[in-house]
Design a protein around this nucleic acid. Structure first.
Lengths: 174, 174
DNA sequence: TGCGTTAGTTTCGAATAGGAACGTAGTATC
DNA sequence: GATACTACGTTCCTATTCGAAACTAACGCA
C-alpha cells in the first residue's frame, strides 16, 4: 500500500493521523484503555493476525504511545501500557465514540456507554473552549497560522480552496 | 490490503473507525472543514492520486459524511460539502488536532491554531461531561453496557483483559 | 482549430498488508 | 520424561491496494 507519510506535513492533524489514523492502531489503543493489555487478549478480542498485532504494537511503542512492561519474570511476559502521551488520546477516543454511537448505531442505542465517576451520570463528551468554556463547533472556530506554521502552507490551503479566505491573519479576530 | 471491516462490531468506536480510520478519508474531511471542497483542490493539497481520491470521495458520500453538490451548470462541476453527520465530526478533528499539536510538533509550537470566535482566544479543545461540565479523562470515566450492547461482548473484553473488572453493571456506579 | 480547466476513469506494475502456519521458551500434567 | 498448554512472536505466500500516467469528456476562450 505504501502507507503515505503525513508526518512531515506542517499540521497537527496530519501528524496525528500518521500514528492514530490506522485501523488497527486505534483499535489497539481503545482496547488498552478498556484494560486489554496483553498480546493474546488483544489478538482474541480484535481478531487481528499475530503478525499485524506485533507490527502495530512495535510501532506504537516506538512512537511513544505504548510502553512494553514486563509483568512476569520467567518466562518473560510483557504487557502494553499507555504512556502519558497515550493516555492523552482519551479525549479523541471518547469524542469518536460519541460520534459513532450517535450516527452509526442501530435503533437500540449505544452498545457501550461511559459513566462519569464524579457525577455518576452516563456522559456524552462535549468539546468546549478551554478559555471561556463554551462549545466548540465547526462554525464558531477559525484556524489561524500558529507559531510553528509556515505561511506557504496556509496559502496553499487557501489556494486549493479556491482562494476563499479561511485563515485568520495572526493576531486578528474575525 | 483487505481492509478489515469493523462495522459489525458492537462498538461505536469500531464503527467510527471503519469510516474515519483511514488515512486519506480523515485528511479529506479535514480539508473540507478548511474549505477545500473541490476535486482538484483536494488532490493538489493532499498529494493524493486521482484514483484514490475518487474512491475515497465516493465512499464518504456513500457513508453520508459528504454530499456531492453541483456548483456549476455547464460543464457540470461538483464540490463536496459536509453533511450534518460530517460536521459533527468537528469535535473529533479538534481533539485530534490538539493531541497532535501537543505531542508531535517541534519546539516552535503548533503550525495551525484555532481561534474561538466567541471569546476571541486561541483555544485548546477541552472534553467535558455534558451533565456536570467537568473534565473527562481516562481515569474518571468507566464504560458500561449500553442499551444496544451485548453482554457477551463486554464479557469477551473482560476475559481478554485477564478477567479484570472493567465494565460497570448497568445502573451501578463504582 | 487548438489549448486550458475541472473532474474524473482506466490500466498497469510494484509494494504492501494480511492470514495461515510455524517456532520457541517456559510451565503444568500425566 | 513425554506431551500438552500458554504466551508471544516470525516467516512465507498471495491478494489487494497504491501511485503514475495516459485517456475521456464537456466546455470556455482566443
Amino acid at each position: 500500500m505504501k502507507r503515505t507519510q503525513f508526518a512531515d506535513q506542517p499540521c497537527g492533524v496530519a501528524k496525528a493521523m500518521d500514528i492514530v489514523g490506522e485501523l488497527w492502531s486505534f483499535m489497539i489503543i481503545r482496547n488498552v484503555f478498556l484494560g486489554v493489555r496483553r498480546f493474546e487478549g488483544l489478538r482474541e478480542n480484535l481478531g487481528i493476525s499475530r503478525k499485524v498485532l506485533t507490527e502495530r504494537l512495535d510501532l506504537l511503542v516506538a512512537r511513544g504511545i505504548l510502553e512494553r512492561r514486563q509483568y512476569h519474570e520467567r518466562p518473560p511476559r510483557y504487557e502494553y501500557r499507555l504512556t502519558p502521551m497515550g493516555v492523552d488520546l482519551f479525549p479523541v477516543l471518547i469524542a469518536l465514540s460519541r460520534w459513532g454511537n450517535r450516527w452509526l448505531t442501530d435503533a437500540r442505542g449505544a452498545p457501550i456507554e461511559f459513566v462519569h465517576r464524579k457525577c455518576g451520570e452516563v456522559t456524552q463528551a462535549r468539546v468546549v473552549c478551554n478559555t471561556c468554556g463554551e462549545d466548540l463547533g465547526a462554525h464558531n472556530v477559525r484556524p489561524q497560522l500558529g507559531a510553528g506554521g509556515e505561511l506557504a502552507y496556509v496559502e496553499a490551503i487557501e489556494q486549493a480552496g479556491g482562494g476563499r479566505p479561511v485563515f485568520l491573519k495572526p493576531g486578528r479576530v474575525a
